[in-house]
Design a protein around this nucleic acid. Structure first.
Length: 563
RNA sequence: UGGGGCGUAGCCAAGCGGUACGGCAUCGGCCUUUGGCGCCGACACGCGGAGGUUCGAAUCCUCCCGCCCCAGCCA
């Protein structure tokens, strides 16, 4: 089969594509597709946001449209520039570009205020003097209608005056609100005269002290989309019941009407995804910051060694639909392995060293051996590795009393040293406590690459590092942050934190790497043969290397061992 | 007991009246100087349940069951 006839996989489609196809058929938007990713800058982005980012930017790209980045910054008490910076960095890192289309809901405050005034003029909004508690009490319950505010029928002029004075700062926080006049008996709670403006004497990260009233998200969000000419306002399922409210505003104001489409947010097994909980993990020191490699944040995944490509592949793989879902974290892990397998250079590293001495190998001899950098990609070439009399191997690759099917080192057993010789363990040296401290071995000189017995087969091949040439490093191992698939399910009176995995981080400080890694730079990714994928942590420095384990290689041995 | 959504394999997810795509996981086998990668094969007589319409139903109709969301001056 040649390239011309190679079938290309059909682009994955989802229910949103169906909706867009219908819009094209009926010419609803003149063929335009314009989306946006609308985060609130009140926290760091996580893998759930990545799904949304890929969906929004991806959908626009698929139809030759555009995707804006817009910050929904309507609550100055929770937002910060730290977050607007990190969000931009993360979206860019994921590989998406909004060009010059970066906006803020706060850019539209004046316009949104004008919309509110217009609603008042139409008799569709009123200033309410009820306290927060009273408003809640008047709201009713899902099964019982609410009751109207005594201020609901204030004359338009009085509303106009009061609203202007709210803006002018005449009233303290919480004393008045502007409410839409809809229907206190609506079965949809969001239509029971929702608050659209509140008084907040707070400094805004962009507008400073220009405002002391701020629009509610429900009022600002849909109108911001409308102002930007967004055709498809993609959001998560919980906003489905808000849609009638957004549509109501748009109809009242007679402005451009985007189509809101709701999809199911991502849930990942063995972690939590709510910003509130992630913030809590950071603030209580359960993890070391937003970019802790155990966090499901974009910056955490980045520091952990994930590639943008792997995260995008993950997003494609999990699909988009409306049913609640919990994606097995194994799908994410598979996505990185798949990417790193073809891209990461191979190296040898010993995490828990066990010294072995090749007794029939001269102490002053150093053999330079060629090792393939990536068997998946010949263009990555080869490198030299030093074979010496004293080597370090993984403690796990030796068993004093080998179990069945253990194909590695054991007393009297033979094993292949990767790229080098077959050796036999002749003697086990123990310390006073009986702990194994060293292995005395012998090698078969004919079995090296190019040797007469090079093809001789033994059951196992293990990795190694020269004890005299290797460089030291710290390697941080990570396990899932929580011990259960769904940490939110906790016993009565306890919360998700009871499921925190006490062993989610293990720092190994006595690791030895092949010398070619001595100059490894932060962010570089490697496969440590037989172990997994690792990347250089920002904490790393020349002479004090620090690696993070991104993910282990698939380990069928571990599986058979458990059986 | 109100309203809005959703039920297809262990986890995702196609399917849009013509006899259940695909991925992850799992289980076999081949290959292998990474117990990696790759390759081959297995994996829903079944689509939440029960009726009905039809030559034919996961797809259409009826009823029932289950799960999620909504009572912030958060987003």
């Amino acid at each position: 089969m040649n390239d011309a006839t190679t079938p290309t996989a059909p682009a994955a489609t989802n229910f949103i594509d169906d909706i867009i196809a219908e819009h094209k058929r009926t010419d609803r938007f003149g063929g335009r597709v314009h989306t946006r990713f609308p985060p609130e800058p009140n926290g760091y982005l996580h893998i759930g946001h990545a799904k949304s980012i890929c969906l929004n930017f991806g959908t626009a790209a698929k139809y030759g449209g555009l995707c804006n980045l817009r910050f929904d910054d309507t609550n100055p008490t929770k937002e910060d520039v730290e977050y607007v910076d990190s969000i931009q960095e993360d979206v860019r890192w994921l590989g998406f570009s909004w060009d010059e289309r970066m906006f803020f809901a706060s850019d539209y405050f004046e316009q949104i205020y004008a919309y509110a005034v217009e609603l008042i003029r139409k008799g569709s909004a009123f200033v309410c003097d009820l306290s927060a508690d009273d408003i809640a009490a008047h709201r009713g319950t899902p099964t019982r209608p609410g009751t109207e505010s005594p201020y609901r029928n204030r004359p338009v002029d009085e509303n106009l005056d009061l609203f202007a004075r709210m803006r002018a700062g005449e009233f303290p926080d919480g004393t008045r609100t502007l409410r839409a006049k809809i229907d206190m008996a609506s079965p949809n709670m969001h239509l029971r005269d929702p608050i659209i403006y509140r008084i907040m004497h707070a400094h805004h990260h962009r507008t400073g002290d220009a405002w002391c009233i701020y629009p509610m998200y429900d009022f600002a969000h849909g109108l911001s989309d409308s102002l930007e000419g967004i055709t498809h306002s993609i959001c998560t399922l919980e906003f489905e019941v808000h849609r009638p409210l957004y549509d109501w505003f748009i109809e009242q104001l007679g402005v451009f009407h985007p189509q809101q489409i709701e999809f199911a947010r991502l849930n990942l097994s063995y972690t939590v995804m709510s910003k509130r909980k992630l913030l809590e993990l950071v603030r209580t020191g359960r993890v070391n910051g937003w970019d802790d490699p155990r966090m499901p944040t974009i910056c955490g995944l980045r520091r952990r060694g994930f590639t943008p490509e792997s995260i995008r592949a993950f997003a494609d793989r999990i699909g988009v639909a409306k049913r609640d879902n919990v994606i097995d974290v194994g799908v994410l892990e598979h996505s990185v392995r798949e990417d790193l397998n073809r891209r990461a250079a191979r190296r040898m590293a010993v995490l828990r060293p066990l010294r072995i001495v090749i007794e029939n190998f001269p102490a002053d001899r150093v053999e330079e051996i060629d090792a393939v950098n990536n068997p998946e990609d010949a263009s990555m070439g080869t490198r030299k590795i030093a074979f010496t009399r004293e080597l370090l191997v993984e403690r796990d690759d030796f068993m004093l009393e080998p179990v069945k099917k253990f194909h590695r080192l054991a007393p009297g057993a033979e094993v292949r040293l990767r790229y080098a010789y077959i050796i036999r363990c002749d003697e086990v040296v123990k310390d006073a406590d009986g702990a194994v401290v060293e292995l005395r071995c012998s090698y078969d000189p004919e079995t090296g690459i190019g040797g007469a017995q090079a093809d001789r087969r033994v059951k196992g091949t293990i990795h190694w590092v020269s004890a005299t040439h290797g460089v030291n490093a710290e390697v941080r191992l990570y396990d899932r942050l929580f011990t259960v698939e769904n940490p939110d399910v906790a016993p009565e009176g306890l919360d998700y934190t009871t499921h925190l995995n006490p062993h989610s981080l293990e720092a190994l400080t006595d690791c030895r790497l092949e010398p070619s890694l001595a100059s490894a730079k932060a962010g570089e990714r490697y496969q440590f043969e037989r172990l997994g994928y690792f990347c250089v942590d920002p904490d790393s420095a020349p002479g004090a290397l620090v690696f993070n384990k991104t993910v282990g290689l698939k380990d069928t041995w571990q599986k058979t061992e458990k059986q």
